[in-house]
Every structure is written in C-alpha cells, then in structure tokens.
C-alpha cells in the first residue's frame, strides 16, 4: 500500500512541475494567477504546439516575463494579449480569434455537418419513395376485379 502511494505520488509529481520558474513569478497572487491563465492560451513560437506556460524555450520565458510586466503596468488581460499579438500575430493564440480570416475555420464544421445531413436525408427520402409500392390505379383495380370474377366464374363451372 505504501509502495502504491509512493508510486502514485511519483507519477503525479511531473505534471505539477511547470516551466514557470520561481524568479519569474509575481508577488501578487492575483496578478500571477491571471498571468498563468493568459499564458496557457499563448503559443510558444519555438515549440509550436505547446503553450508558453509549460514551455522551457528561451523565447517562451521572455514572453512570460513580458506578459507579467504588462500586467504589473496595469494592462487588462485583453490589452496584454493584444500587445503580444501585435508582435507575433494571431498565430500565438492557441484558440483562434473570430474574425474575417478565420470565419471559414469556425463555420466549416457546421457547414460540412449540415451538408452531410442534408445529403443523407434526401437520399433516405428518395430511397423510401422508390421502395414503397404505389397504390394501384383505378383501371388496374378494375382489371384485377375482372380477372378475379372471371376466375371465380371459371371455378364454379
């Protein structure tokens, strides 16, 4: 049991270790918490699919420090992010912003889903239509009636 606890602790420890080094952290816990949240949404431009909060790259560290400086200087979250976006472009945002350039990105899944459903529904409808036997027309009913009458008359003979 003790071994198990030790193992769980040992395995969970690495996930707790962040790239943020003690000397970068702000004394104000509120500002530091804001900085952590913002930096989780910013892409490291060296190791491209990692956020700067968990990256050990030099540029990521510089950006973390820069971000904290902006917050200390009184920037709002949006202003601090805008400051970095102005230098690195929308590309640094891990969540792409909603604007003219990214409109396709946001709506393509919906359009594809809608299109797929539409094609599926029309295909199914059409198949149902062709599979269902149409009712007999009046002349066909008459023809069958005449045939059956003739058969009955024949059987009675």
């Amino acid at each position: 049991m003790r071994l198990l606890i030790a193992l769980v602790l040992a395995l969970s420890l690495p996930s707790l270790v962040a790239a943020v080094e003690p000397d970068e952290m702000l004394d104000d816990p509120v500002l530091e918490a804001r900085a952590r949240v913002i930096s989780k949404g910013l892409r490291c431009v060296v190791c491209q699919n990692q956020d700067i909060d968990s990256s050990n790259a030099g540029v990521a560290r510089d950006l973390r420090i820069l971000l904290r400086e902006r917050l200390v200087a009184g920037d709002s979250d949006e202003e601090a992010v805008a400051f970095i976006v102005a230098r690195y472009g929308d590309y640094v945002l891990l969540k792409p912003p909603f604007n003219g350039k990214t409109i396709i990105l946001w709506f393509a899944p919906l359009i594809l889903l809608g299109g797929g459903v539409a094609v599926g529904v029309t295909t199914l409808r059409r198949r149902q239509k062709t599979d269902k036997p149409n009712g007999l027309s009046a002349s066909e009913e008459l023809e069958i009636k005449q045939f059956m009458d003739a058969q009955k008359a024949g059987a009675q003979e």
Binding site: V45, V46, V59, D62, L63, R87
Partner: peptide, 13 residues
C-alpha cells in the same frame, strides 16, 4: 542582451 528587441521583431529564434 535581454532579448526584448527580438520580441519586438517577433522572432522565434
């Protein structure tokens, strides 16, 4: 020295 001008230029390395 600080790499700050590099950030102004938006360099990644």
């Amino acid at each position: 020295l600080s790499g700050r001008a590099g950030i102004e230029w938006g360099i990644s390395g």
